[in-house]
């Protein structure tokens, strides 16, 4: 399928590994020039090399920056502006906020960190990206969230609160910018086989005394399609929504979860 991404510039935040990296790779495969951002200079350079190994014709611009920092995001967008006329495709992604229950997380600071990381990174990034999209009358924004935006996950209160906030932000912005030809959607992963999910499974394994394999098998047995997803399967959905092939879907929150979450 032609996703019509040639000549487009895509920005993928938190693009050095996991879902962000898979998404950047998929967009590059379809011909977009990709700018990837992550905190560590070394990690982002390594990711760029790895991406080019996978997609030899890829144009990749690695930039170091902390997506939860307003200054760093401003700097990232200044770099992009100096090279081209802004971003056509924006994929907002970030690491997961700290785990924990509401009763455990009594410190305001940890809530404020989660707010900056999960919600404000998307708010600030979209604010920077919109003027160029509005000028061109074309844009695609995809916010990567979590299945927690539709159904709370035990022990992840910060994710549950702020991912849902991003879903609502997605709908609000979709209303405001639709007339400029900008489509805004959110995509949430269920259990996708990333390092993050493996580390969560390891925590469960340590708590329950089960092996890591037993924990993953139990978890997979609760998923209708019977397995974890791959980062690439997730990335293909993001790529579709971020493409010219999507012309009329906006303000939607979609899960890529193999049927796991049963909310309406």
């Amino acid at each position: 399928m032609d996703l019509m991404m040639n000549g487009k510039t895509a920005l993928v935040l938190a693009g050095s590994r996991g879902l962000g990296f898979a998404t950047a790779t998929e967009l590059a495969l379809h011909g977009a020039r990709v700018v990837i951002v992550s905190r560590s200079e070394e990690a982002i350079q390594r990711a760029a090399k790895e991406l080019i190994l996978q997609v030899p014709q890829a144009q990749v611009v690695p930039l170091a920056g902390d997506v939860s920092s307003a200054e760093d995001l401003a700097r990232v967008y200044r770099c992009i502006q100096s090279e081209c006329e802004g971003v056509d495709i924006l994929v907002n992604n970030c690491g997961g906020p700290s785990p924990g229950t509401f009763l455990e997380l009594t410190d305001d600071e940890v809530w404020e960190q989660a707010y900056d990381l999960t919600l404000m990174s998307a708010v600030r990034s979209i604010r920077h990206a919109l003027p160029a999209m509005q000028k061109k009358g074309w844009g695609r924004i995809v916010n990567i969230t979590s299945s927690s935006m539709k159904q709370p996950i035990p022990n992840l209160v910060l994710s549950n609160v702020f991912r849902a906030a991003v879903a609502s932000l997605t709908k609000s912005i979709a209303l405001e910018v639709g007339a400029s030809g900008i489509l805004v959607n959110a995509v949430g992963p269920g259990r996708i086989a990333t390092e993050r999910v493996a580390s969560l499974d390891l925590v469960t394994a340590n708590e329950t005394g089960l092996s890591l394999e037993e924990v993953s098998a139990q978890s997979a047995s609760r998923i209708p399609v019977g397995r974890y997803g791959t980062p690439q399967e997730f990335a293909k959905v993001v790529a579709f929504l971020a493409s010219g092939a999507n012309g009329y879907v906006t303000g939607q929150s979609l899960l890529v979860d193999g049927g796991l979450v049963s909310s309406m």
């Binding site: 399609v225 009329y248 979609l254 899960l255």
Partner: peptide
């Protein structure tokens, strides 16, 4: 209906231009 959506199941996608 394509294999690009191989891990998407149980979803309802509104195609309504934002409603």
């Amino acid at each position: 209906a394509s294999d690009d959506a191989s891990y998407v199941s149980g979803q309802v996608i509104y195609v309504h231009g934002g409603g």
